[in-house]
Design a binder for these strands. Sequence first.
DNA 1: CGGCTCAATTGGACAGCTGC
DNA 2: GCAGCTGTCCAATTGAGCCG
Length: 235
Amino acid sequence: MDEVGRGSLSGPVSVGVSLVSASDELQIDGLIDSKALTEKKRTEMVPLINKWIPTAVGHTQPEEIDALGMTRSLRLAGQRALAQVVSPEIKPDLVLLDGKHDWLTASEPDLLISLDPAEELYQRLTQEAWGSSSSLVQPWEGLVVTIIKGDYKCASIAAASVVAKVERDALMNQLAQRFPAYGWHKNKGYGSASHRQALAEIGPSTQHRLSWNLGVSAEQVKTTYIERAVKNNER
DNA sequence: CGGCTCAATTGGACAGCTGC
DNA sequence: GCAGCTGTCCAATTGAGCCG
């Protein structure tokens, strides 16, 4: 698994998963971390990856990030990705995770504080993700192994990072058409100068992570929260 | 001129250390 | 024992410099 969109100011945080067996051999030349590839090369690589191994991408939306915090949001996106590839017939032995920190395994305090509203929301959304999958399996609680620089060292993590980045970029391009002022087709929601300037001028959209330091007034944040609430009510 | 690499910058989270 | 700081890790963009 690998994550993308963690440091972005808007849009989802996304987690890619690729499913390999120990006997699988790498069949794609030049498959390394998505950040080291150009957008064109990444896009070209996706069909090759999917021909080689099954993949999936899970997302956590901005308003969920505001409610859950980043670690739980990563965990939720990871569970949503896993729910798409795990079945009673295919249960992974372990998950290889890029980085030093294991965000996929719930920490002890999270499990102990069952009354924490964020943890309660996470549990509900995770159950929904697994309940809606065709498989009769439970949320992932298996062995997790973290690998620093895993996206450079491990082909399956690199594959997960490529499919996650291509899918999230496509999502941000769609959102850029709905919210053209922020230049998301170029900055993908990250805090570029033009993005920050637009935020200062017109305030945040419903796709921004309002719990983050966006450099806007409390009044603008409040207005956007109300917009979100109205939208959710209409839905 | 396009592609690549590197440093500096933004965001958050955690582990380990220090000081009260 | 706890709070705060620092370093390390992840995500990324931007601009400068280099190379073919």
